[in-house]
Amino acid sequence: SASLEDVKTAVLGLLVILQTKLYTLPASHATRVYEMLVSHIQLHYKHSYTLPIASSIRLQAFDFLLLLRADSLHRLGLPNKDGVVRFSPYCVCDYMEPERGSEKKTSGPLSPPTGPPGPAPAGPAVRLGSVPYSLLFRVLLQCLKQESDWKVLKLVLGRLPESLRYKVLIFTSPCSVDQLCSALCSMLSGPKTLERLRGAPEGF
C-alpha cells in the first residue's frame, strides 16, 4: 500500500504534465506521457489490482482522460474550469503507423480551432504528436469488463456518452463501437458483474 501511494503521486504528476505538454513542443512528450498513463491502467486490469488506493488511481486517471476532446481538424483539447475547450495546435487524435513515428509534419500553421486557440506554431513546419484515442478506448473496454470498484465504473459510464459525442475521437483511430456495445450488453446481462463490484448501489 505504501508503494502504491508513491505510484499514485507519480500518476497525478503525469496527469499534470500531460495537461501542460498537450499545448507545448515537442509534441512527442505529450504522446509519451499519454502512453505511460494508459499502459499503467492496463496493468491494473492485467494484474487485478483491487486495493482501494489502486481504485483511486484509476478513478483520477479516467476522470482526466475522459475529458479529452477533439475538433473537426482532429486536434485534441481539454475543457477549462468554465467548460470551454482549448484545442492544441500540436497534438492530434489520429492513429499513425509505428514506422512513421509518433509525430508527423505539417507544412505550416493550422487553421484556427473551433475553441480558444493555443499558442501559434513558431516555425514554418510543426511536428504534430499522435495521441490516438484507441489506446484509451481499449482500456475503457477492459474497465467495462473487469472493473471491481463501483465508483470507477460509475465515472466511466457517466463520462462515456459525452466523449462519444466527439465522433472524430472514435473514427480517426481503430476504435470498435461494436466491441463497446458488446461490453456494455455483457456488463448488464452477465451474472458476474454484481459479484465483482464493490460498493454498487442496492438494486443495481
Rank of each mutant, 00 (worst) to 15 (best):
S48D: 14
L12P: 01
L169F: 08
Q142K: 12
T9M: 06
S102M: 14
R159G: 05
G158R: 13
R198E: 12
Y133G: 04
R69C: 05
L12S: 15
F87N: 04
G77T: 04
S134Y: 10
L157Q: 00
L12H: 15
K104A: 15
P132A: 06
R138S: 14
G158Y: 12
L68P: 03
V16S: 15
S111M: 11
L12I: 14
K21L: 01
Y166A: 08
L14T: 07
T31F: 13
P109M: 13
K46L: 09
P117K: 15
E99A: 14
A2V: 08
Y49V: 03
T24R: 15
T31W: 05
L160H: 01
E147T: 00
A183G: 06
H47T: 05
L160I: 06
V177M: 12
F137N: 03
V92F: 10
P112W: 07
V85M: 15
A200H: 09
L141K: 02
S39G: 15
Y23V: 04
S163V: 15
V11G: 04
H44G: 01
C181P: 01
K154F: 04
S3E: 12
D94Y: 05
L76T: 06
L144D: 00
C91G: 03
S102I: 14
H29C: 06
L180I: 05
R75T: 03
N80T: 10
R198T: 11
G108V: 14
W150C: 01
L43A: 15
L141T: 07
F87Q: 03
L43W: 07
L76V: 15
A2H: 13
A2K: 12
L153M: 08
I57M: 06
Q179E: 14
G129P: 05
F171P: 04
L164F: 03
L141N: 04
S111H: 10
A30I: 04
G129V: 12
S88C: 02
Q179W: 04
V92Y: 09
K46F: 10
E202M: 12
S130C: 13
P132L: 03
T172Y: 02
L15N: 10
C143Y: 00
R32P: 01
T31E: 15
T172H: 05
L160C: 01
A10C: 06
C143E: 00
C185T: 12
L25D: 10
S56K: 12
Q146G: 07
L184G: 00
K167F: 04
E35I: 07
